[in-house]
């Protein structure tokens, strides 16, 4: 039996304020999968990602990354993960090169490895003319590219992308889609959250829907499309909305 890339069992996350963001969430992501993680705002997507990556503490439950306990053996688990967060979390005065290079350094890459990898990523994300600029000087789309390059610097086995194309223009979005598909074809496991159903539809092989801190539906992409109304209707129903009402309201 293959060890899952992500194995979450009965995850619960309650904040100090008492808010329970995730309750009894269990799911598995298989190695090599392109996994779409869908849910409305506040459903618990980002909190789940923060628990996986160590940004948030886990209240109870188990998280394993390729069989490694992400809490007890967190250093080993984190070596395998690259994260592109929803919000920009960088030293905004640092340059593009510094931001990517430092991340490689935190992951223990030596100077030669970092140089080669940073150069490649700067070229791949078309950041060459911006390499010496500080993050705060960049446009929204360029910032998003830097965050993605930073997530990839240590060549992680598992890539977690929290709304990576939010606020990005169409050209860049299409380019990113192509690149993510290439990475997935090379064997990288990708977990993607997005509010664009088209993005999930085009890229993902497996889809999970989260609502109220719980997984309410999960399965191969085809299952969602064979249902009447397709992904949109299935998603709206799974998250407690009536598709007809939404459509009527929009009209």
């Amino acid at each position: 039996m293959t060890t899952p890339a992500i194995n979450i069992e009965h995850l619960r996350k309650a904040y100090r304020t008492g808010t329970v963001a995730v309750q009894d969430l269990s799911m598995q992501v298989q190695p090599g999968d392109f996994f779409g993680f869908l849910g409305p705002n506040g459903a618990g997507k980002s909190t789940t990602i923060h628990c996986i990556t160590g940004i948030a503490t886990v209240t109870s439950g188990k998280i394993e990354i390729f069989g490694i306990d992400a809490v007890k053996d967190y250093r080993e688990a984190r070596r395998l993960i690259g994260l592109s967060p929803q919000e920009f979390n960088v030293d905004t005065f640092a340059t593009v090169t510094q931001i990517i290079d430092w991340m490689g350094g935190y992951f223990g890459m030596n100077a030669a490895q970092r140089k080669s990898r940073v150069d490649m990523l700067i070229q791949r994300f078309d950041l060459t003319t911006h390499a010496k600029k500080s993050f705060r000087e960049l446009s929204g789309g360029l910032k998003r590219r830097v965050i993605l390059a930073r997530a990839l610097v240590h060549d992680p086995k598992l890539l977690i992308l929290d709304e990576p194309t939010a606020g990005v223009d169409v050209e860049l979005r299409l380019d990113l889609w192509r690149y993510l598909q290439e990475l997935n074809a090379e064997g990288k496991t990708i977990l993607l959250t997005s509010h664009y159903l088209e993005e999930i539809e085009r890229l993902c092989k497996t889809i999970a829907v989260i609502a109220g801190g719980k997984i309410v539906r999960q399965g191969p992409k085809e299952e969602f499309f064979t249902m009447p109304g397709g992904l949109e209707k299935t998603y709206l129903e799974a998250t407690g909305h009536k598709a007809d009402h939404v459509a009527a309201g929009a009209a």
Binding site: R78, Q98, G105, Y106, F107, G108, R117
Partner: peptide, 24 residues
């Protein structure tokens, strides 16, 4: 690529990571 050794440690310490915090 060949960077899957990322996070390698000597004597249980991520020296390069430690050095990067200081460089930053």
């Amino acid at each position: 690529s060949d960077v899957t050794v990322a996070g390698s440690r000597r004597m249980g310490i991520n020296w390069i990571g430690l050095g990067t915090i200081i460089r930053r």
